[in-house]
Design a protein around this nucleic acid. Structure first.
Ligand SMILES: [Mg+2]
Length: 313
DNA sequence: GCGACAG
DNA sequence: ATCTTGTCGC
């Protein structure tokens, strides 16, 4: 069963007359921090009994939830469900998939290496994925070490089965990225991924996942932060500051191109943070490193072509 | 009430 | 990530 199905299964366990919070359901999934994701997924994919899932504040979260709850004997006022604690249901049973995945991330994170296995990559492969419903369009673009010359481009289309949950991006996007990687010959000597590397709650974001699983040096480049606190904002283009998690510096915030918006670079695998920063800056003709930007455009374009062709039928 | 989580 | 058109500016 896929994750959305597992969520629906958990929600179906809540007895009539009882309620659970989004964090309760997320806990049943194996990670209480996925509460927001559970809300989003239930909103998109209505499951039986979702009216019984409420906010921690006791307020109902879905359009006709209040009347459905009253119908089964649960009083709801403008302050939400009455006696939330008394009616709260938390005895969920299930495979707790997110717990298993988080444990996998923690285990694999031990094999991340931040020593430089490459200093001057000659074939840099970047990947990105676009979506149309449950279909993924992944693209891989190989450039030379400067990002100025495109050496190879590949695209694939594949169904996606895993929803986007912050902290678990790799389980959604990596299968499509791997399919692209397998079509690259010769293999690239560096991977650049649109997402974080070790700048991640388990120190194993998608860039690390790809680097370790494919046994290639890799760099994570994200457009926004998942965890961590940046130092003083760099005042000039080309400047950067460290991003700390606790007392460790796990990434860097770069002011690239001519944009004031920062990008966030971290070690994926087989490369040091310094080298990752140096290479990333070199590839930034604009805010987004050229290989990633091209992979983004290519995947979006493939999706567009597919949509257009589909309308003809 | 505020803060808050890649794509 | 996606939903979406034209428009302003280099
Ligand atoms: Mg992306």
């Amino acid at each position: 069963m896929d994750l959305a199905g597992e969520i629906a299964d958990l929600v179906a366990q809540i007895p009539a007359g009882r309620v659970a919070t989004f964090a309760d359901v997320a806990e049943g999934l194996g990670d209480p921090r996925a509460a927001m994701a559970v809300f989003r997924i239930l909103r998109e994919t209505p499951a039986k009994g979702i009216h019984r899932v409420v906010r921690a504040s006791a307020h109902v979260a879905f359009p006709r939830a209040a009347s459905l709850l009253r119908r089964e004997g649960v009083p709801v006022s403008d302050r939400g469900v009455e006696d939330l604690e008394g009616r709260r249901w938390r005895e969920f049973s299930g495979p707790r998939t997110l717990k298993r995945l988080r444990e996998e991330q923690i285990r694999l994170a031990a094999s991340v290496d931040d020593a430089d296995r490459v200093l001057e990559p000659q074939r840099i492969a970047a990947f990105d994925v676009s979506y149309a419903g449950d279909r993924a369009f992944a693209a891989g673009v190989v450039t030379d070490g400067t990002g100025g010359r495109v050496l190879h481009e590949v695209t694939i289309r594949t169904p996606v089965d895993f929803p986007y949950i912050p902290g678990y991006l790799a389980y959604r996007e990596f299968p499509a990225i791997e399919a692209c990687f397998r079509r690259l010959d010769p293999p690239p000597d560096l991977l650049m991924i649109d997402g974080h590397g070790i700048l991640h709650p388990a120190r194993f974001g998608i860039a690390s996942y790809a680097g370790v699983m494919l046994d290639r040096p890799s760099i994570g480049v994200a457009k926004s932060l998942l965890v961590g606190t940046p130092g003083p904002t760099p005042a000039e283009a080309g400047g950067w500051t460290g991003v700390r998690v606790g007392r460790e510096t796990l990434g860097a915030a770069l002011r690239s191109g001519r944009s004031r918006r920062l990008i966030y670079v971290s070690v994926g695998h087989g490369v040091s943070l310094r080298t990752a920063i140096r290479i990333t800056i070199r590839l930034c003709k604009s805010r987004i490193p050229e290989p990633i930007r091209r992979a983004d455009l290519l995947s979006k374009n493939e999706k567009r072509k597919w949509k257009k062709k589909r309308i003809e039928f």
